[in-house]
């Protein structure tokens, strides 16, 4: 149970958060080619090392929080101050194919 430094709530257990994906840019939906768009949809860097990602503090402040995480050791550092984390992937609970989706604690 590693911890994530929430800028609003302090160090909290990762179980309070939902992983919302690597930080990435959303292509312009008016001009994106299928390849660009689907790369955005499906392809993450998936590096073994330091990664910039977004977490949603579901059991805490309900804010999307940017952090850097080492994906091998699970060490976490606060994200550098910089642009707000970019678009987060939707929560897994809305997968329409999942009959047991949703209805979480809150």
């Amino acid at each position: 149970m590693f911890q994530i430094p929430c800028p609003h709530c302090g160090l909290r257990n990762v179980a309070e958060f939902r992983h919302a994906g690597e930080q990435r840019r959303r292509p312009d939906p008016q001009t994106a080619t299928p390849e660009e768009w689907r790369t955005y949809l499906y392809t993450q860097a998936n590096d073994a090392g330091w990664t910039r990602e977004t977490w949603y503090h579901r059991f805490g402040c309900r804010r999307f929080v940017g952090v850097q995480r080492h994906t091998v050791t699970n060490e976490v550092r606060p994200a550098d101050t910089g642009p707000a984390p970019s678009v987060a992937s939707p929560p897994a609970g809305i997968d329409a194919g999942a009959p047991d989706a949703g209805g979480g604690a809150m």
Binding site: M1, V14, A15, R18, H19, Q44, N46, A48, T71, V72, T73, N74, A92
Partner: peptide
Amino acid sequence: DAYPSYSMRGSLE
């Protein structure tokens, strides 16, 4: 596990 990782250490939860 709910988040990507290359850790193979296992978790209590």
